[in-house]
């Protein structure tokens, strides 16, 4: 359910730490109701970009709006309507679960505080443990607490920095169902993640590498635009085959997956030639398949590295 109203619209966003450029000329447009997946290797600038968006860092250059408010001048008003979940747990470990939620509710001046906190505890399933110190929770539960705390004041925009890192599959699925429900209600979500299955559940993706936003679009369009061709090879002795295929420059990515091999490259003809000997052997089954998002991202990362060096 994507509208046309741009909730995030920034241009030329840059930020350096010393002489290290963490975010370089990033243009980002996220529309109302979007679930925007933010991907990129470690240290590529995801967290920094998110901090720039919610006014926690001052950009060196760039301009734009967040929720129709100026990112540079009106960060105070932006904060009221944004729910930001930090990558590292940053609620108070020496406060109980309930006290943390109470604090958040008070700071945002919520009127029905008690009811809202009760409801959040109920949804979390933490009613029984509400008087436990937050510091005593397991890693995954801390994530879930942080998530529900940053949604407590019903923000219009959620900025979630790796919200499901270390969270079990059931909780992750619940989380993504919730994200889609919120999206359906017109809430915009920008979420950074390293999980491919989560990337596939977003309706838009942005891929950042070395501070540059190198790819943007729906998962489908990213796959199509990547120019990748992917073959699936099934057969015996897959690891020896993988080593042999890696000799061909056209086989840019050779990824063993169980007993199968994903072979991708951009030069369709050369890749076909590299695979021809295998196709002629009866023991091997070779077929064309859709490129996977992971292969697309790794290609994006590699090409942006080549451009850099």
């Amino acid at each position: 359910m994507t509208g046309q109203e741009a909730i995030i619209d920034v241009r030329g966003l840059s930020k350096s730490f010393g002489d290290k450029v963490a975010v370089n000329q990033v243009n980002l447009k996220v529309h109302k109701g979007d679930i925007f997946g933010f991907l990129g290797p470690n240290g590529s600038g995801k967290t920094t970009t998110i901090r720039l968006l919610c006014g926690l860092l001052t950009p060196d250059a760039g301009e734009g709006q967040c929720l129709g408010l100026d990112v540079l001048a009106e960060s105070r008003r932006i904060k009221r309507q944004v729910g930001y979940m930090t990558q590292r747990f940053s609620f108070y470990e020496d406060l109980t679960i309930r006290e943390n939620l109470d604090f958040v509710a008070r700071v945002y001046g919520m009127s029905g505080r008690k009811a809202a906190v009760d409801e959040a505890l109920h949804q979390l399933g933490l009613e029984q443990r509400q008087h436990q110190l937050a510091g005593d929770l397991s890693g995954g539960w801390k994530q879930r607490l942080a998530l529900s705390a940053c949604m407590l004041h019903q923000p219009k925009l959620l900025l979630l920095d790796e919200p499901t890192a270390g969270v079990d599959p059931q909780a992750r699925r619940d989380f993504w169902d919730e994200i889609h429900r919120l999206s359906g209600r017109g809430i915009t979500v920008l979420v950074s993640t390293h999980y491919m299955d989560e990337a596939e559940r977003c309706n838009r993706l942005g891929y950042i590498a070395y501070g540059h936003l190198v790819g943007e679009g729906s998962p489908q369009s990213l796959v199509e635009e990547s120019g990748l061709v992917t073959w699936l090879v099934d057969g015996p002795d897959i690891h020896r085959v993988a080593d042999e295929l890696r000799q061909f420059p056209a086989a840019e990515q050779v990824v063993p997956f169980g007993n199968r091999l994903y072979v991708s490259g951009t030069d369709e003809k050369a890749l076909g030639q590299a695979l021809r000997p295998l196709m002629q052997q009866a023991a091997f089954h070779v077929e064309r398949t859709e490129p996977r998002l992971e292969d697309v991202f790794i290609r994006l990362m590699n090409t942006s590295r080549e451009e850099r060096w």
Partner: peptide
């Protein structure tokens, strides 16, 4: 140092 400042700064206090 505990990292809680990031959260505090993100809130409207």
């Amino acid at each position: 140092e505990r990292g809680t400042m990031e959260n505090l700064l993100a809130m409207p206090v």
